[in-house]
Design a protein around this nucleic acid. Sequence first.
DNA 1: ATCGTTGCAAATGTTTTGCATGTCA
DNA 2: TGACATGCAAAACATTTGCAACGAT
Lengths: 127, 127
Amino acid sequence: MTRQKRAVAALLAETDQFTSAQELHARLRNAGEKVGLATVYNQLGALVDAGEVDSRRGESGETLYRRCDLVSHHHHLICRHCGLTVELSAPEVETWARELGRRNGFNNLDHVLEITGICDRCSGDSQ
Amino acid sequence: MTRQKRAVAALLAETDQFTSAQELHARLRNAGEKVGLATVYNQLGALVDAGEVDSRRGESGETLYRRCDLVSHHHHLICRHCGLTVELSAPEVETWARELGRRNGFNNLDHVLEITGICDRCSGDSQ
DNA sequence: ATCGTTGCAAATGTTTTGCATGTCA
DNA sequence: TGACATGCAAAACATTTGCAACGAT
């Protein structure tokens, strides 16, 4: 358990939006933490493998990371404006996806579902 | 309407798996077509904007392209082994996603759903 | 002391861009 | 001809890797 490991974990714990490795690294640097970019990538990869962090690809191609609130399989509802993220359980969709895959002759099914929109806070604002 | 434009469109027409720009370019070259990589990217971008081609990000980070069969909003069921792709309409999921977003105070909802699995052909094979 | 972690710098791979050239209409 | 498409080479990114120095236990 190194200082860098702790720093990355701590930053993720207080961030509830999907964030790129580059940005997390920049924030750590700004906060005075001396952490290498490669280490940030390393840690994020490890945390994803450990199931403690979710990752997804942003539109611009970078990988975005966020700590997991739900332990089990879940989906995200994400505000396109401010990045606010709500984690969703969706049993109906799970069943539906598995069933539909099976009906098409597929095994070993998995799926990714992501809902995006503008949250009420951002809709309300003049933003 | 240039020769290159036609070549890219023709290749996409006869390809029904998601394919990277790099690979499409390589195939065009192998087929004797003289097309620049930048032009392939250009064309693919234009076709995506025109709604004639779907794009998604592969696991390794590149963008994959495939001609659209369905004009309207739809989803994909993709074989992780051979890349076989089935286009799906899923009204239940559309409604569900919109409703769930609204219930969380989101407007302007959109979503992405992708189901992956191993198709029967690939399951059957020793592959 | 040992062994995994770190972090720089360089490599990798994809996509974009600048700009001179070619080509369609 | 005149505007736009092309395509090379170089730039711009995100990410990975090699490897020597470092630090936790």
